[in-house]
Amino acid sequence: MSSRTAEIEVLRRRLAVLEGRLPQESQMSLAPAPAASIMQEPTHTPSGSEVEGAAGVCVAPAGQSRHRLCLGVEELDQLSAQHGFKLGTLHEFTSTEVRQSGALTGFVAALATLCLKQRDGMVLWVLDEMVQREAGLPSAQGFLQFGLDPARLLIVAPHRVEEVLWALEEGSQCRALSVVVGEMQGDFKSLDLTATRRLALRSERSGVPVFLMRHSGQAAVSAAMTRWRVTPLRSEAVGLRNKGAFVPARALMAAPCWHVELEKNRDGRPGSCELEWNHAEQRFKRISRPECGTSLGTPAPEATHPVSMVPRAGHRPHLPQGSGQVVALRRRG
């Protein structure tokens, strides 16, 4: 009898997952004990302070470790429905300009580094010829310092964009790979809904994540699960503490940091965040810059009418707290 109820429970759960409305309670009850304890930890730390999440593997619930990637930054991980981002699917990363390719490469390389901790195998890195000419090839030594072992890189440089897509498709079917990364520049007709859908389906079947980098790419119709926009961030004054007083050393550069905007997220809510990559410990750290002023989910309020904004995409399981609130509006005139 009990086995039957368990079976029904499992089926219900699968149905919920299929419909994209996995209720929080059932997940709690079914999730393994250690995972649940992590889930119940206070999620909102005071803004501005650093969130000391451990690197991806530790935070991820045990049962999902191979299928979900936790960035180790609570605010970003909370954006997806089930804590951490789904791995076996297509993710897009864009930058507004080609000269920002360093920042884009950095963020994707950091994600790939986290993936490599969870999954065995090589990284297939496919570059379009145009990207090679404009932004150059990945540098082995740079990647090594960054935390990604160049011995696990397989660089493929086809002639044409169609061949890039074909190589990505071939790669996304190969279970021996840990991540597939594709780089393109600009917008292409061949990179349409069909092409991205094919990639996403293959990736879902094999479980190999596909990261598609589009330098200076516009937001286009695509079947990707998420789309991220990465912009470089000025480094903060790195300084020395001299008897309690902060002495900024102007010349020094800080660790790589970006403003990362999750523009589209079919798995949860969009949002944005400022991140820093700690290459020695191989983990992300959340930073907050006073001059940037934006924080997760809540864009800067308008100056004239300070109205609490409702976060975008409210139909997702993680309902915003602020919805349905009564707000007073100032009468005109």
Partner: peptide, 23 residues
């Protein structure tokens, strides 16, 4: 293909080599 773990030497310092090299 063996890349020595040089980055251990660079611990706690900034990154000295770029991620991308132009052709």
């Amino acid at each position: 293909i063996f890349w020595p773990d040089e980055h251990l030497l660079w611990d706690n310092t900034s990154l000295e080599r770029p991620l991308r090299l132009l052709a």
